[in-house]
Design a binder for these strands. Structure first.
Lengths: 154, 154
DNA sequence: ACTGATGCGATATAACATAACATATGGCAT
DNA sequence: ATGCCATATGTTATGTTATATCGCATCAGT
């Protein structure tokens, strides 16, 4: 189903471009390409993996090239960084602001993004009690996913 | 209050040593020294900062020296790693297992460790709904602490 | 003494990220 | 059209964080 997937990626890229227009941000060729590479990746992609892929179509690409694009994409909330993996994934809920939470499987490397409102609220309240104003929150649960917990069951 | 503080660090080191005995783990000189450096630090300490300090008393210290000690201390839950900072802090609740949460101030660099049971429960439930078994959880809120939010108020 | 586990020394290198300065590109006021 | 500014990207170099690997020493259990 490569064709179907490519169409979905294209749609996501168009959505992202529109979001940038609304935000008054410039979705350039470079940024679009890096976002595409992230969307096309099977799982989390490291900056240097993205760089290697980027080089295929952009000869002079070097680390700052990709890190700048990543900074932009993160600022636009189109991409998340997984701090435990030093790797990047597309934002699953592009558009609305949210406190993303990630389930990282140690066995198969799969990453699932969830959004548990109760947990988010609880953390916001806990921060509030301390007089703390959160701007960016990292929530990453590392462990074993359902598939890897029930080996060869299905 | 240097003397008071030194006594507190000593007490924490002794506690840690006892915890290791109970766990059947060896608190060696190196590990004890690295833990002491972390306890003595004003805030989060990076591995290479610890290495520099360690070198003063241990000439041949190199990165693996400190990383091995850190791995041990984290396994014993005596030290936490802050993923956003690539830095290490002592565990505030040494002894009982807990899902630590950190409030990291961007202004002053202060890090507070809290433990909000409601948030922890919510995340555990959310993970459970996905069939995910968490082994290690990272929760880090980056923002502005109370002191930095109310500048020059006191 | 033998053996296996572990802790650490030592060297090298991998992986991740940014600083600093140069060059291009496009909008816009004159 | 020209000059100016802001933004994006190119370019070079370097800084920062972390691990692989091999070897030696120590020590508990047999």
């Amino acid at each position: 189903m490569g064709a179907k997937r490519r169409r979905r990626v294209m749609a996501q890229l168009d959505q992202a471009a529109q979001a940038c227009v609304r935000a008054g941000a410039q979705m350039t060729d470079l940024r679009r390409t890096v976002l595409r590479l992230i969307l096309e990746a099977e799982g989390p992609a490291t900056a240097y993996e993205l760089l290697d892929r980027l080089k295929r179509t952009r000869k002079g690409a070097v680390p700052p090239t990709v890190y700048r694009a990543l900074d932009f994409l993160m600022a636009q909330r189109l991409v998340h960084k997984l701090e435990r993996l030093n790797a990047f994934v597309p934002c699953a809920e592009t558009g609305h602001q949210h406190m993303a939470q990630f389930l990282i499987c140690r066995e198969c490397g799969t990453v699932a993004e969830i959004e548990d409102r109760a947990a988010a609220r609880a953390l916001e309240h806990a921060a509030g009690r301390e007089g703390f104003q959160p701007r960016h929150t990292v929530i990453e649960l590392e462990g074993t996913c359902a598939a890897c917990s029930h080996p060869a069951s299905g």
